[in-house]
Design a protein around this nucleic acid. Structure first.
Length: 809
RNA sequence: GCUGGUGUGGCGGAAUGGCAGACGCACAGGACUUAAAAUCCUGAGGUGGCAACACCGUGUGGGUUCAAGUCCCACCACCAGCACCA
């Protein structure tokens, strides 16, 4: 027999699969049920695929292959997320046209993905930067605009001075630019917003419905940041009691309302202008406003310790429940963008309020039991203890849980309070001052204002240029391309100009799974019936770093498209699996930037694709971070070698009696593990089976046949080759073996025998006998008999097929 | 600080409340070989003992249970997300 030459064999099958379009998904298959597996498409970077890509692609591939063998019509597509910064940066640095950069990048990574033996449908490849694709990204934007979900506004946004562009909140998490890692500052600019905040509740529903690890759901809920409380309106007066109108505050702790000793307003508060004639120290106040404006919101947020404030002298708010007259302060811990930008301050029960009160010598009123002498008794503490209220009028003496609903009711009845829900998530700032992105299909006309382009004129092509830098005003590079900027108004036909900002790199990825169902459609983003046929993505694999960005954007757009009738379902994904990281020997993430990466192709060249696939996943669970190591790869190559040599010990037909239990267990175990993407335990199950056949010195032809099919999703090359050699047929045409429920246990099994929960002996028994017979049999054993002699058996526990425990006295 | 997760041999890691450490690596001994590699066989959680065996063992301390890595309570460490969100 020829020794296994992985280079030859793997190349042969990879070529064959592509040439024969072996993994084509069939629209509207007449008999097979559909299954949609998706791997998060890679950013076209011009670089090489890294280990992280193996962590995500291979389980998806194994699942796709497993489902096909189980009779499913599988859609397993791939494409390139191509409007991204790598292309833009390369253009700025080397002058290479991003169009060319992406073309080369796509070719390179397609080639590399093929070398991983992945079973993609190569006829459905998409490129988000191609006009055929971004026509529909622009179309979706037009729909958002027409339905009032997109608006342009002057606003204070995150801005990266290094990349010279605005960023969304999602792109500047932790105050760092998502792309360059530099510090993000706040800047006032024209911003295109998408009304994502409006979708908060729907997104939370998506989060509830998707099958996903709890910690990921939690991260998303955290980001959306729902909090339920009350909005309360307080009267304003001057010293002599003159009515100055009202102020709205938001609180989640209405139970502390009797403890208000001042109100804190965001420094930007519009109330200052409104009340200016009554504020005695207006110069001081304006000065304070100017000072805080110099500090960015992020800076203010990150400097948690040095809280500052400024009294609005001469104006007061009236606490509606006890008519206390309390002063107003501007305080920089209050954020203008959250809630109403004003809070009721209760120093005894909120640490921030406490700190300000100490600094300004503001009195405190304790309204809930606890020790307030050195710090505030905060919500978490008094709720946990369900403490009693103090100094709270008719509510004094009640427990918090009892008082709170009654207080809410009272304020609602008084007509000054209403239940209110706030979200931390903000609208999505959607424009960037970059060249390499989708142009906005928006025209500005002096007569007609902001005018959307006609849908039939899409796509609006991104013009070619060789100048990829923003101008001195920080406007997008497109603003320098006159032929692009100048246009006619679609409404009145007069001279007009185009929006020159482009969409963020997240735009194209916010709907791409829909396009795969009908990637070449030039009439629609995808045919409705095809969308309906393929439905939601059944299993979506990819990194966890996109969980509070891409995945939320995906939920948002799919909800919107559903509402306008463009897609048949609200849920983009049925199940989302977050792949773990591959770590280096220091326990750090392998990445290009930290230069600690091991190239997958280095491993593939040395050990082969099958071995690399198995090894990466034998290292640990799919969702776990696993440290990379070559240790253990010898075990994998030895295993594959043993698989290859099974050909030499074929003896007999059918499934042998001796192997029946092992084989049936293997079928069951491996099937379950593929469904759950637990590839590491699947691999160990194969090893156990192969050990058994080698001990016995043979494998029957039928056993080998089934074994190869089971192993095929993980090690597709070697199993395809062996199947062809031994059976002269194609493994892809085979069907998944079924296991027999009755053949999962041996007729004779070993059980543990315990006395008083301590292991005394192990015994072999017939697995079919009754519990009574087991007990009788066990008691005949010498060791057991002597141990229980003269004692009274209090309790007898039999766990079928596992153990017997006798409790004696 | 809040939320979630994790904690098991020398290492990667297995265990629907039911014999902890599957499977693999590394290691040791043996076979084959002039020799080495590869391959095959055997051993192995720790402590004590020639041994049979005994005791101890899943981050720490309690608890529930006939039985706890698994469930409950408290704590520690690490990882991740959020963080002046009223």
């Amino acid at each position: 027999m020829k020794e296994y030459n992985f280079k030859e064999v793997e190349a042969k099958w990879q070529k064959k699969w592509v040439e024969e379009k072996a993994f084509q998904a069939i629209d509207f298959h007449p008999t097979k049920p559909k299954y949609y597996v998706l791997y998060e498409f890679p950013n076209v970077s011009g670089g090489n695929l890294h280990m992280g890509h193996l962590k995500g692609t291979i389980p998806a591939d194994a699942l796709a292959r497993y489902k096909r063998l189980n009779g499913y019509n599988v859609l397993f597509p791939i494409g390139g997320d191509a409007f991204g910064l790598p292309a833009e940066n390369a253009a700025i640095k080397t002058g290479i046209d991003p169009h060319e950069f992406v073309k080369e990048g796509m070719a390179k990574f397609s080639d590399q993905l093929k070398k991983l033996g992945l079973s993609f449908d190569w006829d459905r490849v998409i490129d988000t930067s191609s006009p055929e694709y971004y026509k529909w990204t622009q179309w979706i934007f037009l729909q958002l605009y027409k339905h009032g979900k997109a608006y342009k506004q002057r606003g204070v946004v995150n801005f990266c001075p290094n990349c010279n562009t605005t960023l969304s909140n999602e792109d500047s998490q932790g105050g760092k630019c998502d792309r360059c890692g530099g510090d993000v500052v706040q800047k006032e600019r024209w911003v295109w917003y998408l009304k994502m905040k409006e979708y908060s509740e729907k997104l939370l529903d998506n989060v509830d419905r998707v099958e996903m690890a709890e910690y990921l759901k939690d991260a998303q809920r955290n980001w959306i940041g729902k909090s339920e409380g009350m909005q309360i309106s307080l009267k304003l007066e001057n010293e002599s009691g003159q009515d100055l109108g009202q102020v709205e505050i938001f609180t989640t702790c209405v139970e502390t309302i009797y403890g208000i000793t001042f109100l804190a307003l965001a420094p930007e508060s519009k109330l200052v202008d409104k009340l200016q004639t009554y504020i005695k120290n207006i110069d001081e106040v304006k000065k304070y406003q100017k000072q805080t404006a110099l500090r960015s919101e992020f800076e203010r947020k990150s400097n948690q310790k040095d809280k500052t404030g400024c009294l609005l002298s001469g104006v007061y708010a009236i606490n509606p429940v006890n008519n206390h007259k309390v002063p107003l302060y501007l305080a920089d811990f209050v954020l203008a963008g959250y809630g109403t930008g004003a809070v009721m301050a209760v120093p005894s029960h909120d640490q921030r309020d406490y700190d300000i009160a100490k600094a300004f010598n503001i009195p405190m009123i304790q309204v809930i039991e606890g020790d307030c002498s050195s710090h505030a008794v905060e919500k978490a503490e008094y709720l946990a203890k369900n403490s009693k209220l103090l100094n709270s009028g008719e509510f004094t003496g009640m427990k918090v849980s009892e008082a709170k609903p009654k207080m809410i009711e009272k304020l609602v009845k008084m007509g000054i309070g209403k239940k209110q829900i706030n979200y931390q998530m903000q609208d999505w700032s959607f424009n960037r001052q970059r060249y390499w992105g989708e142009p906005f299909p928006i025209v500005f006309c002096d007569h007609c204002g902001t005018v959307p382009m006609d849908e039939k004129d899409l796509p609006l092509l991104l013009p070619r240029t060789n100048d990829y830098l923003p101008n001195e005003n920080g406007d997008s590079p497109l603003s320098k391309v006159e032929s692009f900027v100048d246009c006619k108004c679609p409404k009145c036909g007069r001279d007009a100009h185009r929006e020159t900002d482009t969409m963020p790199n997240w735009a194209g990825s916010s709907w791409y799974w829909l396009r795969y169902t009908d990637p070449h459609n030039s009439e629609k983003l995808a045919d409705f019936d095809k969308l309906k046929y393929w439905g939601s993505v059944d299993c979506y694999t990819g990194g966890t770093e996109h969980i509070t960005r891409h995945v939320l954007y995906a939920f948002f757009w799919q909800n919107f498209l559903y509402e306008i009738g463009a897609v048949p379902t609200r849920d983009p994904f049925v199940r989302k699996m977050g792949s773990g990281l591959i770590l280096d020997d220091q326990g750090k993430k392998m990445s290009k930037s930290s230069k600690n990466g091991v190239s997958p192709f280095e491993v593939i060249n040395k050990y082969g694709t099958d071995a690399t696939r198995l090894h990466v996943h034998f290292l640990g669970g799919y969702e776990d971070n696993t440290p990379w190591s070559y240790d253990g790869i010898n075990g994998i190559t030895a295993f594959l070698d043993k698989v290859w040599h099974l050909q030499e010990i074929i003896k007999g037909d059918g499934v042998s009696k001796e192997h029946a239990v092992e084989l049936n267990r293997l079928i069951k175990k491996v099937g379950e593990d593929y469904e759950d993407l637990k590839l590491n335990t699947a691999i160990s199950a194969f090893m156990i089976f192969i050990k058994k056949t080698r001990e016995d010195g043979y494998i029957t032809k039928e056993e080998l046949r089934q074994f190869l099919i089971l192993l095929n999703p993980l090690a597709p090359h070697i199993t395809s080759e062996m199947y062809e050699i031994v059976f002269d047929e194609q493994i892809l045409d085979q069907t998944w073996p079924k296991y027999d429920e009755n053949k999962l246990t041996y007729s004779e099994i070993e059980i543990a025998v315990q006395i008083n929960s301590k292991l005394v002996t192990r015994m072999k028994i017939d697995s079919n006998i009754t519990n009574e017979e087991i007990l009788k049999f066990v008691k005949q054993d010498e060791k057991v008999a002597s141990a229980i002699a003269g004692k009274y058996v209090v309790k007898e526990i039999v766990v079928p097929n596992r153990l017997v425990n006798l409790i004696v006295k």
